[in-house]
Design a protein around this nucleic acid. Sequence first.
DNA 1: TAGTGGTCTAGACCACGCC
DNA 2: GCGTGGTCTAGACCACTAG
Lengths: 235, 235
Amino acid sequence: MEERRYRTVQNFLKLRIQQGYYEVGSYLPSENGLCSSFSITRTTARKALAELTREGFIERKHGKGSIVLERRKTLGLLNVKGFSEAVGKDVSTVFLQNPVPGNWDPKINFTISDAELKKSCVHFSRLRFVGSEPVMTEYNWMAGEYLKGFCDLDFIEGSFFKTLSRHYHIEITGSDHELRAENADENKAILLDIPIGSPILHISVKFLTNINNFNIYSELYCNTKYYPIGNSYHI
Amino acid sequence: MEERRYRTVQNFLKLRIQQGYYEVGSYLPSENGLCSSFSITRTTARKALAELTREGFIERKHGKGSIVLERRKTLGLLNVKGFSEAVGKDVSTVFLQNPVPGNWDPKINFTISDAELKKSCVHFSRLRFVGSEPVMTEYNWMAGEYLKGFCDLDFIEGSFFKTLSRHYHIEITGSDHELRAENADENKAILLDIPIGSPILHISVKFLTNINNFNIYSELYCNTKYYPIGNSYHI
DNA sequence: TAGTGGTCTAGACCACGCC
DNA sequence: GCGTGGTCTAGACCACTAG
């Protein structure tokens, strides 16, 4: 079975967005434009654009066009309230451990597939601040197979997800979370600058991607006293 | 502007689902059936069914039909892992406070609109168990205006959301969450049968509905030691 | 007024599930 | 084989946005 025509158009546009050819805030070609370029009818063009909408890449505006979105905002992920999405906020990140080849860690709270375990693992960890206050430590693991050169790469605008999208065309397609309230151990207490035993929010995340058997495993530890974790979901 | 034809069909089917006329697990009329019944073309019938799919009421199965879903599973809400969705699990709920007229509580972590504040408030609270272990206390507030007779009602299968849907055709259309790790105060410690000061997960929720200015505000306190909170999101 | 997306019709052919 | 949903064409009219 050959590829659906709407998928051809959808993937063509998606690639151009990932490459930055269509920048965030700019408009895609109109439906009629796509009809001409690809020799398709509006139904098919609209289906392609509907799929990109569903995936969170664009928003359709009646009378104007299809505008390219900052995708992270549409993904329904848990976020430190007023953290990365806040404009003008004094947020920053430091690496505790730059990306390096490493081992799958038993700290990971999800089941790692055999296919992943057989591959080598890449690890990095970060400490994230609002102003001068540390609010979250973050530990990440993933199979290195698809990330040639990743350890020598700078993150695009400090964003791991943007880097995956731009350089590797890897997109997040879903995530599973587990949430726990815990007491901070000595290590976390020092990093987050709180007393040992303070309550912290432990979030285990498994990010699924468009690549089979390539998932990203993250363990997050948050001081929610002043910056709670937020999440929004709308039909 | 008159109502779109696909919306007519969509709302017709939605009402029948809410009323239980089409039960969970059963099939809606086929596309061609809807075309005949409503004198529309397949494009329009498919649009109606696509909307119901997006809203989480049905799932479309190639070669079979449109099957009615248990909607809560598709809503992307935070759940106690292995709690309400687990089959055969020994889960139960007791009311700490049956639904009663009450006052808007300052404990609510979200901003309540003036329109809501002007209305009377209905409150209830529950304690939820897995086996004999209490894992979550739950406090709920909402404007009573649309809930005539609610305080005298039994919940359908113990579910607040099912009751809202069946009796009042009120559906959840979204939710905002705020998550905090806290220490249990004496009251929560007793209810959850844990030492005072134990870390607990405090979840503040604002549920949005299909009715303007009718939101449900919930404050949840969870012992996540053995039953973490889970959440799944997939494109 | 021109261009955009939103709705809708009336067909056609294909792929999947089931008897 | 037959009914189901999935894809696609070729048109039409309408509603929104902007110059």
